[in-house]
Amino acid sequence: MKKKRWLTGMAVVLALFLLPVLTGQNYYLLHIGIMCCIFAILAMGLNMLQGYTGLVSIGQAGFYALGAYGSGLLAVKLGISFVVCLLVAILLTAVVGLLLGLTTVRLYGGYLALVTIGFGSIVQLLAVNMTGLTGGGEGLLGIPPAAFGSLVLSTTHYFYLVLAITIVLFLVTVNLVNSKFGRALVAIREQKIAANMMGIDVARYRLLAFVIAACFSGIGGCFYTFFAGSLFPDYFNLPQSVLILIMVTLGGAGTLYGPIIGAVLVTTGFELLSALQSYQMVIYGLGVVLAVMFMPYGLVGVWQRLMRMLSKEGKRIESGAA
């Protein structure tokens, strides 16, 4: 069973890495692939908070922006290299995530959601108004492509890099979820008081989830910056935060694959349904309403239920025939 899962995983990874070769390094497809990875990272981060710990944040675009502008400014103004920018983006979002976590340590549900909306707006407004630094609405322009020393990464290379990091972060998530840390987060989501009595420091683990979510967004932000080459505050608006939330909810909050599936579906969906333009949000909105009402674990949950039903059905037929 475990071996089979490993093999499937390896096959999927191999297929993903071969994708650029098979598609003749089609720029448009690479672009979609990179954005899928970036959003998968963002959604995996939010999933730690929303899915496993049960804390809703509608301000992840704020951390996304911090990672993006943090690394973008370093690269443009100081000419600092990609790797250092990435590390600074992680550090910056970790610190801000910790601060936001500390200020909201007693908030749950809608109240927490409101504060995180406020946080997202604050970050966006800072990006708009600190024109001297960020360029405001004119945008932060001229961000160089990512490079290691003198090796400037092509789009294909960049796709490989982002894909590799996404896979690493996914594996880290899997490991954490299957450790005392992941169990502590779920215990807090399920039964806060009992969790506390089992020796779990609720406040501390909440902060941990906040910081992980923030760091993942920071990493996503940095990768976006070096891919896009320019940053505009409008991109990091409230709908962007909602979109990340939609990815997690639709794919399956509190599942390992859910956020990735959600990120890929929504990102490619935007391309496939581009003719519908702003009506797309109506479709996603409807999807979320349905997910919240009927699919507590999103599409992954539906899939799991289906598999369980099929295997039960299979067993019944087998035993019936015998």
Binding site: V186, A187, E190, Q191, A194, M198, G254
Partner: peptide, 21 residues
């Protein structure tokens, strides 16, 4: 009852070991 309803029976017990792991 204050169990962790969505966790398995086994996981519930393992959460109890939190400070010993």
């Amino acid at each position: 009852l204050r169990l962790f309803p969505e966790m398995t029976v086994l996981e519930n017990v393992i959460v109890g070991m939190h400070s010993r792991i």
